[in-house]
Amino acid sequence: METSLIKEELLAQQLQNAFENIVTEAVRKDTVFAYASKEQVSSILLYAKEKLGYKSLAHMSCIDWLESDEFELVYIIWSPETKLNLFVKTRIDRQNPEMENMDMIWRQLNTYQREIREMFGVEFPGFVGEKEFILEDWEDAPPMRRDFDTLEYVNDTFFEREGREDKQDVRERIAKRSGEEIPDFAKKYSRE
């Protein structure tokens, strides 16, 4: 597998030559990673788009690294000429999460930024986009953060309808209510 990474190595080298202080890595076939500081990301993306032909933005993602108190932002861009995926990765402070707004480079980033702002609470100063995207009237912590406990939220917010509590054997309840006997062959599936 390691033998045919010529295109990938070349791209990694090109980026390395153009920018100081970034780390690039030809990871595997069709994939190159570039690790940069958050200030450098926009210039790397612009350089890749304008000079290297990485015209298409495939994806933008955010990962919560709770242990090291950081968010990782990943921009995945693709070139129609080299057919390579370039991952531009950066880490930002989790306590004060802020990232440069880049929807002027690719306007679909507007949608991604809206989602990441809503789900992780990352702010993009100067970014114009409707506040709500997926969630409606949400006032709690951003829900995709690792420290947001979904189960706790559900238990606090919703109640279970009477007779529909968790882990109830509905069939037995109905049988009991209507005074019917559960047949022997079905008794082994009983939960009570």
Binding site: E132, F133, I134, L135, E136, P143, M144, T150
Partner: peptide, 11 residues
């Protein structure tokens, strides 16, 4: 959007 959010990625 928002009528079909099922939080799959969180699940």
């Amino acid at each position: 959007v928002g009528y079909l959010h099922r939080a799959f990625e969180k699940l």
